[in-house]
């Protein structure tokens, strides 16, 4: 039984970090790593979800807004190019998601924001996704003597599979409670030895 509890606890504590390629969900923030630099990644679908923020995958089709906020000030002095390429499959969920593919980069992008400097530290990308599909995003930052590329696959119009994030912890907790209750129901009550005269 304790192995089961340990496994559940490990599941609980392993929710700190996940992501697709360059985009990582760290704690409660979605971050995009480009070489040594870090940006905050925020996805919005205001027509469907008001102010809810998404981390890479967009659950529905329609008007979508991606905002990149530069955490490292140096990025404000560099050009940023954002391009999205159509893909045939969803993110693998492995390290391969982040591997830059030159053949992909050579393709005509689905849409692109040409390289430009963003002195306010915020890059806003608006796009209307009319049909669901899988995509690969590329963010290319270029300074005087440096250039870094980040790749992140994402999907549009595919609701998240499996157990919703908000229910994972309550369900895990429920199972822990049930297992503990069953364990106690199986045990006989402890009886102390009677005092011998």
């Amino acid at each position: 039984m304790f192995k089961g509890i340990n496994a559940l606890l490990l599941v609980l504590v392993s929710t700190v970090s996940w992501g697709h390629g360059g985009v990582m969900n760290e704690g409660n923030e979605c971050k995009l790593r480009v070489g040594p630099y870090v940006m905050n990644f925020s996805g919005y679908q205001p027509e469907n979800n008001d102010s809810k923020q998404f981390c890479d995958d967009m659950p529905t089709i329609g008007k979508s807004i991606i905002v990149l906020d530069f955490i490292d000030r140096k990025l404000r002095d560099m050009t940023v190019n954002f391009r999205v390429i159509k893909a045939t499959e969803a993110a693998l969920g492995t390290a391969e998601d982040g591997v830059v593919n030159d053949a992909e980069l050579a393709q005509t992008p689905f849409f692109e924001i040409p390289a430009k400097e963003y002195p306010t530290g915020t890059m806003t990308v608006s796009q209307n996704f009319t049909e669901k599909g899988h995509f690969v995003g590329y963010v290319i930052v270029e300074g005087e003597n440096e250039k870094f590329i980040s790749r992140f696959p994402f999907s549009v119009g595919y609701p998240p599979k499996g157990i919703p994030e908000a229910l994972k912890i309550p369900i895990a907790f429920f199972f822990v409670v049930v297992i503990v209750m069953v364990w106690f129901l199986r045990r006989k009550p402890v009886a102390f030895n009677e005092k011998q005269d």
Binding site: I5, L9, L12, V13, T15, V16, E26, G27, N28, E29, I169, F173, V176, V177, V180, M181, F184
Partner: peptide, 22 residues
């Protein structure tokens, strides 16, 4: 005793789940 242990288990779960401050 069962309630006491359940409270202890729940406390342990919450304590272990505490994600690092970012």
């Amino acid at each position: 005793k069962a309630i006491a242990i359940l409270v202890a288990v729940a406390s342990a779960c919450i304590a272990l789940y505490a994600a690092p401050a970012m």
